[in-house]
Design a binder for these strands. Structure first.
Lengths: 186, 186
DNA sequence: GTCTATAGGACGATAGAC
DNA sequence: GTCTATCGTCCTATAGAC
């Protein structure tokens, strides 16, 4: 999983070589294929692995700055969570794993092509995030879907700039400033 | 150029096949290589072609809604141009060429890898855009670089969402709403 | 300026031994 | 569960005829 994440982040799924993955694992290519079946199977395995890992870690990160974690938070669903705080927690977590952020950035763009094996996965993911943000935004504005899309756009854009120049840009600070523009006037 | 843009947009530079490009041009692979020398040469040719094309077209688009085009605008430099109007003109133009937007989105992310042949090109491009936006933002805020980065982030993010679901999202409208959040309180 | 022919390799995947 | 051997295909690039 780890090796595959790095290699896809570097060259995309189309540029990924099973040979390179196998080499990093100390396996031969047929040895690797024994587990994942095919190259697409490897991609699916990585995405599922990331989903589990991220769901787990986000809950930890949400609570890490709080003295007491409300019950609703630990239940997994984002209901009742403050939207601005949820975004900040996400960015705080992402600031510590640039390679993972880059993996998703590469796949998200590559999968705009309907023929990409992760096309449906990212379409669904995007819809899910926007609609759950919109649910939380209902309390803040009369156009919650619009605000949700703006937040997602800004998060994606800020992360992209941070990835391009991690030395100059502090992801957490940059997001805090952007959040002020988005949430400040509400 | 046209064929290459579409194919890179679909599969990235690493996924691009000279054979596919040659086929679409009605050429053989050596026939294509005669002009561009190598696969990297083809990429460079495309980027240079887009630079010329976009510089030309942006000036037209900037003036298209105005009765009179001020002299400074036609001189090429963005000095004196209203920043918000410049962004709107860019988005208006991009709304008409989704394939080109997707080409740049794919290459921009793919080239985060320092080993990518377009890495330096996109690093320079990014720096140039941010600093020219920041110059225009000086009149609007006391933190012009920050505003410039926020604008670029939001433009990139909005375009990404639009590319993923062009039927639901109107790029120009979506940007207008986002611009209100960024410029409205200044 | 465009072609045929070909070099020389990497690719994903399968078959079958151990 | 991991290997060797191999298939058939694709890849970029070069050499050289026309």
């Amino acid at each position: 999983m780890e090796a595959t994440c790095e290699l896809i982040a570097d060259c995309g799924f189309w540029g990924l070589s099973m040979q390179d993955v196998a080499d990093r694992c100390g396996l031969t290519v047929p040895g690797l294929l024994h587990y994942v079946g095919s190259k697409v199977g490897l991609l699916v395995a990585v995405l599922e692995h990331r989903d589990r890992e991220d769901a787990k870690a986000l809950r930890v990160h949400l609570g890490v700055d709080e003295e007491h974690v409300p019950d609703e938070w630990s239940d997994g669903g984002p209901e009742g969570v403050d939207l601005r705080r949820l975004c900040a927690a996400t960015m705080r977590r992402n600031a510590g794993q640039p390679e993972i952020v880059r993996l998703f950035a590469v796949l998200a763009v590559e999968s705009l092509n309907p023929g990409h094996p992760a096309h449906d996965y990212f379409a669904a993911r995007q819809a899910r995030v926007v609609s759950s943000f919109a649910a939380l935004a209902k309390q803040l504005t009369d156009r919650p879907e619009l605000l949700a899309r703006q937040i997602v756009s800004m998060m994606d854009g800020v992360q992209l700039q941070w990835l391009r120049d991690p030395g100059t840009i502090d992801l957490v600070q940059e997001w805090e400033a952007a959040a002020e523009a988005l949430f400040g006037r509400l």
